[in-house]
Amino acid sequence: MATILVYVETRGGAVQPIAFELLAAARSLAAPAGWTVEALVCAADPAAPAVEITAADCVLTMAHPALSPYLPEAHAAALQAVVDERQPDVVLFGYTTAGLDLAPATAGRTGRTLAAYCRTLALDGGALTASAQVYGGKLIAGIEAPLPAVACVMPGAFAEDAGRIAGSPERIVLPAPATLGALKTRVLEELFPEAGGVDLTQASRILCVGRGIGEAAKIAGAAEVAELLGAELAGSRPVIDAGWMPKARQVGKSGTKVRPKLYVAVGVSGAPEHLEGMAKSDLIVAINSDARAPIFGAAHFGAAIDLFDLLPALADRLRAG
C-alpha cells in the first residue's frame, strides 16, 4: 500500500509543532487515496517524543547517539536508510532549517522529485501537485512532482489540530544504519537564545510603535501586546527622537533595518525612511487611524482603527490564548 512518510522534528526531546502540521497535511493527502501515514522520529532517545505522535498509522523510531542534537549528516543518513527500505511514495518535511537540509538531501539521495515552499498539496494521478510560495510571496507556483516525491511544507499551511488527533499507531523500532558510525561532522555544542539585550535584526517578531502612540506613558499598552505576541518592541523615528525608547529599538533608515517574520506597526504613518527599514518583513500588519497612511501600501493586512481601542482588545484575545 502507498505510504506518506512524515519526518518528525524534535528538539530537546520534544516534538516541534511543525510536525503536527505535517501530520495534518499527510492525513489530508492520505485519506482520499486510502494511503497510510508513517511518522519517523530520529533521536538519541526517540521513545519520549514518539509517544506524542498519535495521528499516524505507524510511528517509526530510530535511536542513535549521533541523532541528537540534530546533525544534518546524521539525519540525512538515517532518512536515506529508512526511505530506501520502506519506499514511501511521499515524504514530508517542514520549512525549517532541518527541512532545508533534509528535503533536498532525501530527494537527491533516493532519486525522488521535490517540491519546496508548499502551501497546498494534492495527489493527481502519478504526481504530487503543490502550490508553492515563490519570489518572496509575490507569486504562487503550481508544481507537479512525479511520484515518488518529497515535499517541504510551509508552516501555517495546515492546521496542526488535525495532526494531533488521538489514535493508536503501530510502533516500529528501526535499526540505525552503519553509516551513522562514520560521520564526518559532529555537534560541538548547542547554543540557546540569551535573555536580555535587543538586536532587532535578530527578532523574528517586532511590534513597532509610531508617533500615533502620543506619549511615553502609553507605550506600556503596546509593550504588553508585544510581550503577548512574543515580539520585540520597536519605535519609529519620532518615538525614538522623543526619548520614549532607546535608539537600539529604532526601525528605519536611520535606525535598524529589520526583516522579521511578523511586523506589526501601530500608529506608524509609514514615511519612506521607515518603509525602507521594514518593508521586506515576511508579514506586515498595520494599524493606523488614518486610512490613507502610506504604511498601508507596504502592509499585507491593515485596519484603519484607533490603536487605543485595538490594543486592549488584542491583549485580551492573546492572553486568552
Partner: peptide, 28 residues
Amino acid sequence: GAAMWKGDADAVADQFVALLRERGLLKG
C-alpha cells in the same frame, strides 16, 4: 497594498488573531 480589516476593535482583533493562528505566529 494591505487587505483591510473592517469592523470595530473586537472584530479587527479577532481577524488579527485568526491571521496569526493561520500563519503559525501565535506565541508558544
